[in-house]
């Protein structure tokens, strides 16, 4: 039997993002639950978040972000042979999103599947794409993180509804001579499966906030350090840190533990909220758009969420 031959390395060729037009402020939320702007800024770090329209789907947002990523990469739609969408908030459980997204973008018949590792999904997808390209299962991958959390949170529960937002982010990943996606550090802790759940079709999100906070601030700094060690990049040489935008206090704790003293740190949660699997490509794409992340920069990405699951790696900025 023959085996496939892949590319020596893989890297991100272009990024894109999309946020719905409707903006929800903390004061807007304080009008319907007992909370206030100062508390939300202080404990979570969110000031505004974007909320999808009722008739705007996860697929709609994914298509918008992916179209921009294709343009940024200078990639023709028909050059994509695998589409992977990280999401945990689809309206329906069948069909998955990726085949429809491909069709809407004019990508003819690629391999297509969705990936659910909750908020960590995009970082899982980076390694799936890297492996596929290096092993020869795919030449060019469209990886998307897209979420409509607004459809799944209980808008009367002030411990969750203040945190989340809707968005999509996407990356086109292709072969390269050098490594552009470093070794992954990933893992899970199923003993804490109950910490973040959406238990059923008509149920809303339930979250044990403090337990998640403790877990993230205890373990993610070490994961970040290990991802740097495996990539062979010293923390002080990391140019950009993009932790999952779960809570600004968690972001700060991870960066402090990592010792990435010279890095630009993504603080996209401030005006996007926590957008689950979309948060990392959204935050990185916006840093690139603003010129704060530059081509060739070493970027540490690190995500964690329900499962509990986590994954992180050092990547090269497109």
């Amino acid at each position: 039997m023959n085996s496939a031959t892949g590319s020596p390395g893989a890297r991100i060729l272009g990024l894109g993002h999309y946020r719905p037009s409707k903006v929800l402020t903390n004061d807007d939320i304080a009008a319907f639950v007992d909370t206030n702007d100062a508390w939300i800024r202080d404990r979570v770090g969110v000031v505004t978040r974007h909320i999808a329209a009722d008739d705007e789907s996860v697929v709609d947002m994914a298509v918008a972000a992916a179209g921009k990523a294709l343009a940024a990469a200078g990639a023709e739609a028909d050059s994509i042979d695998l589409v992977v969408t990280a999401t945990c908030t689809l309206e329906a459980s069948l069909p998955g999103a990726s085949a429809t997204i491909a069709t809407r973008l004019g990508i003819p018949g690629p391999g297509a599947f969705d990936l659910n590792a909750a908020c960590a999904g995009f970082c899982y997808g980076l390694t799936v794409a890297d492996d596929a390209i290096r092993c020869g299962s795919a030449q060019r991958v469209l990886l998307i993180g897209a979420e409509k959390l607004s459809a799944w949170v209980d808008w009367t529960d002030r411990s969750t509804c203040i945190i989340f937002g809707d968005a999509a982010g996407a990356a086109v990943i292709g072969g390269s001579e050098t490594t552009g996606i470093g070794p992954v550090v990933w893992g899970s802790d199923g003993t804490r499966a109950g910490a973040i759940t959406i238990p059923g079709r008509d149920a809303a999100m339930h979250m044990e906030g403090q337990a998640v906070f403790r877990w993230a601030t205890t373990t993610m700094g070490k994961v970040a350090l290990e991802a740097c060690r495996r990539a062979g990049v010293a923390p002080e040489d990391i140019a950009i840190v993009v932790p999952h935008q779960a809570n600004l206090r968690i972001v700060d704790a991870i960066v402090r533990q990592l010792g990435a003293t010279n890095a630009v740190v993504a603080r996209d949660i401030v005006d996007s909220g926590n957008t689950s699997a979309a948060s990392i490509p959204l935050a990185l794409s916006r840093l690139v758009e603003r010129g704060e992340a530059r081509t060739g920069d070493d970027v540490l990405v690190l995500a964690f969420g329900a499962g509990l699951t986590f994954a992180g790696q050092v990547i090269t900025c497109p």
């Binding site: 202080d42 404990r43 403090q210 337990a211 906070f213 403790r214 601030t217 205890t218 206090r249 704790a253």
Partner: peptide, 23 residues
Amino acid sequence: VDSLSMVEVVVAAEEKFDVKIPD
């Protein structure tokens, strides 16, 4: 020290003093 900082203090104390401080 608010509830979240307290969690961070506890986590750091566990490490520094090699002690378990349950929730």
